[in-house]
Design a protein around this nucleic acid. Structure first.
Lengths: 108, 108
DNA sequence: ACTTACCGTAAGCCATGGCTAACCAAAACT
DNA sequence: AGTTTTGGTTAGCCATGGCTTACGGTAAGT
């Protein structure tokens, strides 16, 4: 999981507003589940469920520290999304180039 | 709409698998609604609704051509997502740097 | 003018998925 | 050993949203 083909998982995960907030929060600083739940309008189990999804998408990881589990962002998820974006960005550029070529061809 | 703060809209839009397929298809080549509906397991009105969401997110645009409306990707949406990704990538790096500093401090 | 092709929107149905409450497990503190 | 803190999981509720059908509207073809 979380290889270069995991962009769909990452995008699906970040499609939810609460998970985006969670991810942005973890990007600023690692945090435990309880700390994440505070300041969010959802319960702690809800946060756990969201973290599970983010983890499966390769967007976060956690390390155990006593009874706490400190979550932090996983670079692989961001990398997968960047590759996905760049790929389709290149596709779109190439498609536009084809279009421009067609126009030029018709004008000649 | 579709300014640098529209990343949430773009991410929400691309959270749906059908819309991702649509977007990837349009990145490869512009297409009309009817053409997009063919090859997808959903009806044409469903495609129209998805395109409406993608358009509101600044991810696609359309040009009228007779009765057809040719959709193509809008670079602004991709740009907004890239900025969002880069921002949190930088945040995550800085957070990791803080963590590394703390470790070094404790060891001294 | 009539027909055909293409498309957006509204109404309504229904499945997906996000939420809470309740339960169980593990680690640290007293 | 008992208590407390933290957190993952399950069951079940319910709202969000994606889908289809039906309709109206515009542009091109005949």
């Amino acid at each position: 999981m979380a290889n270069q083909n995991s962009a769909p998982l990452a995008l699906s995960a970040l499609g939810d507003a609460t998970r985006r907030t969670l991810f942005e929060r973890l990007a600023k600083a690692p945090a435990a589940v309880v700390d994440l739940a505070r300041g969010l309008p959802v319960s702690r189990p809800a946060v756990s469920q969201h973290l599970k999804v983010l983890k499966a998408a390769g967007l976060v990881r956690e390390v155990a520290a006593g009874t706490r589990r400190i979550y932090h962002v996983d670079p692989r998820g961001i990398g997968a999304m960047r590759e996905w974006l760049d790929q389709h960005w290149r596709d779109a550029l190439a498609a536009f180039q084809d279009y421009a070529d067609d126009i030029t061809e018709e004008e000649s």
